[in-house]
Amino acid sequence: MKKWVVLFRKEWLEMSRNYKIIWIPLVFILFGLLQPVTNYYMPDILKNASDLPEGTIIEIPLPSRGEVLAQTLGQFNQMGVLVLVLAFMGIVSAERKSGMIKAILVKPVAYSSYITAKWLSAVLLSAASIALGMVASWYYTGLLIDPYPFMNLVKGTGLYLGWIIFLLTFTVFLSSRLKSSGLVAVCALLVSILLSLSTSLLGKWMEWSPAQLTTAASSYLVDGRVEGPLFLPLVITGVLVVIFLFLSTANWQRK
């Protein structure tokens, strides 16, 4: 346990030395705050940006406060996932490539501690970044459109984090198996896109999919209740996270 803490502390030191601890939250805060702001000023932006004929009337209904927050989640699900996958694609594979992993594992350290310390620090930083981004979005939505109940925000974001934790675990798993960080990113993004697409296209068949959590989170933010399956995807996501975490920590030596 003590060694796990040492490894965990090293991850945070590293993330602060390479400024991940600053830029990842900043990116999410920026995305979060842009969503209500662009929604609010959209008519003005269009008016100034395009050369529409004189007298054109632009009428865009202002989205509801819940819709703005759901849009923010949608934004996170595209750019946010990309940022997180790129930030953590090399979390294990880079150290495997450099040989650092050998320098650590030649010490009496359990491989599972090594992986879980990395996994938890990636999950915590990502969760905190997304939470901060959602709070930024919530704050500006309240300011510009209509105050939104904070507890609903917390619950909706919580549901969404299930999907993110699944994706991060899968990224860590790939990173522990593949040598090339680029390949890790491609595979992780591909899986995220395929799962999201198939979940929205083949609704009936994909009720178990972790990507259902994003749909659930969106509908919760908009309507205050979850449409569609919730329990099943939550359980499956939990199981998949455990399975992939277990697979990442299993036998690392070359046979």
Partner: peptide, 17 residues
């Protein structure tokens, strides 16, 4: 492992430490 010390052929470190 607690009883041995090992230096690999190309020692690597965390360059930021």
């Amino acid at each position: 492992r607690e009883q041995i010390g090992y230096l690999s052929q190309h020692p690597v470190f965390y360059p930021w430490m």
